[in-house]
Structures are given as C-alpha cells and as structure tokens.
Simulated assay, not measured.
Amino acid sequence: MVIGNPPYGAELSKKEKSIYKKLYPIGSSNTAQLFIIRARQFLYLNSTNCFIVPKSLAYVSTWKNTRENIKDNLTLLIDCSKAFEHANLEMLIYLINEKSKIDSYKTASFEQRKYLTKVNKTLISLFEIFPLGVKDEELNLGIKIRKNIGEKLTDCGKHIWGDIFYKEIKQEKSDFKVLGGKEIQKYFIKSKPKGFISKYLTLSIKSKIQENSILLQRIISCVSGERTAICGSIIEKDKERYRVVNTIHQIVCKPYLSNRLILGILHSKVLNWYCYAFVFAKARLSFQFSGESVGRIPLPKLNDKSLCNEIISLVDKILETKALDSNSDTSNLESKIDSLVYKLYGLNSEEIKIIEGGEK
C-alpha cells in the first residue's frame, strides 16, 4: 500500500523538468502528478495507492493524461473540498487498486461523511471529467442533460479571449474605453471602465467587440462558495468605442443564433447547476473558460422557436432595464427565463426540484 499527501506545485529546475518528462511522459511537470505516476510503479497485484491531491485531478485539462493513467484501476473518489485551512486549494482523495480493470468507482463527500453513489466509468468519457461528490439523482439528471443536447457551447460560434495590453492602459480619458472581466456583470456593463487607451496603439482583432457576440467573465467564480456563476452581457450600442483585455471571453455567435438566446441559457439555473456538477466537478473556488471546458457545456436543442423567441424577448427586457439602472431587480424576468430553459432541456418537475434544491 502507498499512502500519502504528495507535494503539489513544487518548483523544479529546467534540468529536473527535462529528466521527469522522459521518466513520466504525461505532459506535465506538476509534482503531484509525477508522484501519482511514480506511486503506481511501486504497486503489485491487489496492492493499493491512496493519495490526497488537488481537485484538479477530476476536471482540469492539464491533468487529463493522469486521469487516463489511473481510471481503469480507480475504486474511490472522495470530495474533500477545502481540506486544509491554510491551503488555497480544494482537494480530493483517490483510491486505486492494482488488479484487473474495474468498471465503476464509488464517490463520497468528506463534509457529509457519507458515500453518495457509484459511477460507471463509461461516464468519464461522456462528461470528460471524473464525476465527483454527486448523488444518484444528480448523476442521472446530468446524464439526461448531457445526452439530450443540440450542440456544445464550443460549436455555437467563435470563442476569443481579449488582447493583452495592460501596460498601455491609462486612467486619463482617451479614445477607447477598456473592459476587463470585472467590468462584465450579469446582464450589464459597469459604468466605470478599467481604463482608457489611445487609438494610435496597435492591437489585434481580439481586442474588438464583434457583431452578435457575448462578453463573459473569463474567470468563473461561485456565488457564496456554493455554485458556479457564469456572468456575461452584450454591448451593441457604440461597441466600436471599447477594447477588451484577455480576462474577457467573447463568444461570436453564428449568424443563425441569437446572442440573446445563448446569453439567457448561459445565465439559467439549469446550465449553471450542470457546469458546477459536471464541468468543474463541484469546485467552489475560481476556474476559467478554456477550450476544453467550453467543449463540455451542453446547449439544449433549439427546435422550439416559440420558446426561443420568448427567451430572446425576456433577455432584451433585462438588458434594457439594466441599461437604465444596473441595480434594478430583474429576478422575476430571470425566473421566467429559467422556466423556459427547463423546457428546452426537457426537464420534469422532479428534476427541476433537484436543481432548485442545489441552488440553496
């Protein structure tokens, strides 16, 4: 048996990285991942390895090869959340047994001190993560949402991070207003920009706001540390007066897709619940939109034009209301959007209760 709490994020010299890259070809020099691979080399038939490691193992793209390395022998995953008081990381405990391949693993919650469900390993390829800390009913609902999709978010248009020109940003008024992630709020843009830049500064196309686009905070956070909160808005009036930095994730929707429709879906309770549970493995700190995470987000089928048009109309009303007063209460309109998006995903009343219960 190999048990431990391996070092993570330890600094390695270039020489050490080169050596470990050859010894452990997993595409990463993260020391926790190196220890995981090394631990397996000590295991014999029916022996066990149990480590407490960053929750990144469950969902982060740079840990993908390590997930592949251990998944066949994985028997248990425990969600430990923020296990150590002075460590700014969420953790999990994994247990692998070096015997013949196992077709499922158990997942449990350290906070709740109980076993939650058994996860069939075919679901790892479906969700592209290690589902972690979910109950039976959550897992079944996640499967339904993931399988009953029109396309993934990555397919709805072009995804662009803003440009990098922080050193050129000034606080004195100039030709263009600069926006960063903090200026993007749910359905509105803060009145005070990040700063200003001159029109004589040469920037790439990434800095410009495109037609039919959505501006999202690239760094995603959780509300009260409990659930994912995607945050975005739309700028159409005088958009040429703005430039954006790379803390903004811009989606340029395809011509046949309304940016208002996609924005309404992205802000819905069901999609944020799904992202929390099955894109970011119930992580409660911050994470970001990336090529891989965007590719895991399922959009519903958009065949019901009546429902889609209702969502577009409601989003229009919210944007207009927030433009007049960003402090306006639009919760009633947002609740109506939630109800319509539930219908797009084909959810029944019991399934909605699972999501609404998870919002508390």
Rank of each mutant, 00 (worst) to 15 (best):
L333D: 07
F289N: 09
G142V: 11
S28F: 14
K208E: 15
S233D: 11
I160G: 03
I355E: 09
I19M: 03
K17C: 09
S207M: 02
S258K: 08
E151V: 10
P193N: 06
K182C: 12
E137F: 08
D103F: 00
L347G: 02
K269P: 05
K192G: 07
E11S: 04
T31V: 13
S18K: 02
L43I: 14
G357C: 03
Y24I: 13
L324H: 06
D163H: 10
N88K: 10
G9T: 11
K254C: 00
V279Y: 10
S349H: 14
K147E: 01
F110D: 03
F280E: 10
P298K: 05
I209T: 02
V119L: 10
N140M: 09
F287Q: 00
I129N: 03
N272D: 07
E111V: 06
K158S: 13
K254N: 02
S56D: 11
K322G: 06
V279E: 01
D329A: 12
L132K: 04
L95Q: 01
K15C: 02
D338A: 11
V178P: 08
L141K: 01
I160N: 08
R38C: 11
N30K: 06
C50P: 03
K158T: 15
F42I: 13
I262D: 05
S293P: 07
Y256T: 15
S224H: 14
D325L: 05
L77A: 06
V53M: 05
C231I: 14
T202E: 15
K208Q: 15
K282W: 07
A39I: 11
Q250E: 05
L12K: 04
V341P: 12
N148R: 00
L344I: 11
S18A: 09
F188G: 00
I265A: 03
I102T: 10
C231A: 13
D136F: 08
G232W: 06
N327S: 09
K254I: 04
L139E: 00
I354V: 02
L139A: 01
R38D: 15
Q112T: 04
L43S: 12
N30R: 12
I3F: 00
K186W: 07
S221G: 08
S204V: 02
Y187C: 04
K192S: 08
P193Q: 04
S125T: 07
C156P: 02
T330K: 13
K353N: 11
K144C: 01
